[in-house]
Design a protein around this nucleic acid. Structure first.
Lengths: 147, 147
DNA sequence: CGGCGCTCGTTGACATCGCAACTACATCGG
DNA sequence: CCGATGTAGTTGCGATGTCAACGAGCGCCG
């Protein structure tokens, strides 16, 4: 049994690694330049905009380690964009929520961010291509998640 | 004109960012654990396996900054997997090539790497899904490249 | 020739990330 | 009620990445 990939698979996998890597790097840099936010910070803000969360929930939602979420939230708290509060139900837990300045900052950043995403992704792909990419990577994520 | 994304686009974009991020992290960790190689190092080795290259060419091929390539190649040279040589034609340039141990190491790593890629991507997607993802991200890469 | 601007590759300072170890709290089983 | 085990979050340290600035060499144009 030869576990190799054929030529087409190799080409597609290479495109995925290098394309995705470059894309994430570009989007991250764009967010830094225009609003002084890391992509990781931005993602956290987005998820918090849909309601307050515990650190662990946040970690699984953005697919980052808990340690990383701690550090990222630290920065956001120092910047006044997020608030921490101990959770009454479970005294180990920490409640993270968006502050008003945080929401304002997110909304401002989102405008430019969306433009960049359009430029690099949405406008480059046919609508059904984007759908295909989305559903495919959702599957990949699920597979990687429970491993 | 509202530059917003609709719900489906947002879902797909989110899946792309989080799925791709998690995937790259998993593959990187797997390479480290099994062969002590970074994904960045591995990619460089792969490109060098197809012929010696100048640092700049290497940088554009893997879509990394030149500074990053310098550091990555540094490590590979220290590990004895890659050789450097000044280029006679252009005395600014540096010739990077795979050593014999480098090729051996790459081949060993590739076996396990491919297994992991199968597990996380190839086996999870239908063949035409993988093709779609590959061609879509190739387009995205091209768009991000010349920006 | 001589200067100007470009590319090549590297370096050092700084930011970010992963990992392992740790404290505090919860929860389960006797 | 108590000890064992598990989970939440944080911390420190090492590895890796970014960015700006640099020295060196190329090449064009007067």
């Amino acid at each position: 049994m030869t576990p190799w990939l054929d030529a087409a698979q190799q080409r597609d996998w290479r495109a995925l690694v290098e394309g995705a890597g470059l894309l994430l790097a570009r989007v991250d840099k764009h967010l830094r330049d225009t609003h002084g936010l890391t992509l990781a910070e931005y993602e956290i803000l987005v998820h918090l905009s849909e309601g307050h969360l515990h650190m662990s929930e946040l970690a699984t939602q953005v697919s980052h380690s808990r340690a990383r979420v701690t550090q990222t939230v630290d920065r956001l708290v120092r910047a006044g964009l997020v608030s921490r509060a101990p959770c009454p139900q479970d005294r180990r837990g920490v409640h993270a929520a968006l502050t008003d300045p945080g929401r304002a900052r997110l909304e401002a950043a989102a405008r430019d961010h969306v433009l960049e995403v359009r430029r690099l992704v949405v406008d480059v792909l046919a609508p059904d291509e984007l759908t295909a990419v989305g559903s495919a990577l959702a599957k990949v994520r699920a597979a990687a998640q429970d491993t």
